[in-house]
Amino acid sequence: MLDELSYYHQAILHLAALITLSSFLMLGQSRLLRLIGVFAAQGFLLSASTALVAQTHDFPHLYISALLSLLLKGLLIPMMLYRLVMRMNLHREMDTVEHPAGVMMGGATLVVFSYYVCLPIVKLSPLMTLNTISVSLAVVLLGMLLMITRRHAVAQVVGFMSIENGLFFAAVVSTMGMPMVVELGIAFDVLVAAVIFGIFFFHIRSSIDSLDVDRLSKLSEVEE
């Protein structure tokens, strides 16, 4: 079935597979610096697929999106996180995943689930869109899983940002990007969110003397 597709489609499918793979890598990665590294790689893949779509379909405005995601997701945010980790002296800290096998199985289930959810879409579009939409939904859900399984604030932020990556991928490959003004707006929101996260690290650390967000547990319904 694959050889019926054009080179472009094959390339996009490969990139989609690589992006999912990077999500799984993040899921199993317990060292913070490597986690950030994989996240940056995902940003590069995202930017590459955007540029590919722009080139093939001749959508010049997608080049801007590609550049934006390269700068924002591939360079700026990972570098910011990296510097924060170094500055707060966290690079030796491990954020161990508690049941790695279970988490991976859960991740695989989520991917299957995403394909199931997106089934109605296959009826009206070619194979490729089904794959890309399902993959991007899977990346979103895997990002959530990452956030649920981790206790470290930095890992949670990486999960949060990889959810954004999944959404961005969906927009690029299934609809050739959103209108420019929306895309700029989203990029702006992501940038502000990244800055606020940076501020938060310091707040959290000064309040609980660690970035282990599991210790943020003063506010709960079952008290005293």
């Binding site: 939904l137 949060f160 959810i163 959404l167 996260f197 938060f200 707040h203 609980i208 943020l216």
Partner: peptide, 20 residues
Amino acid sequence: VEAAWKYFILCGVGIAQALF
């Protein structure tokens, strides 16, 4: 700080669904 973190994370993730 805890309330704000919770607000940020939960609303951020929640509203990501709306973007999808």
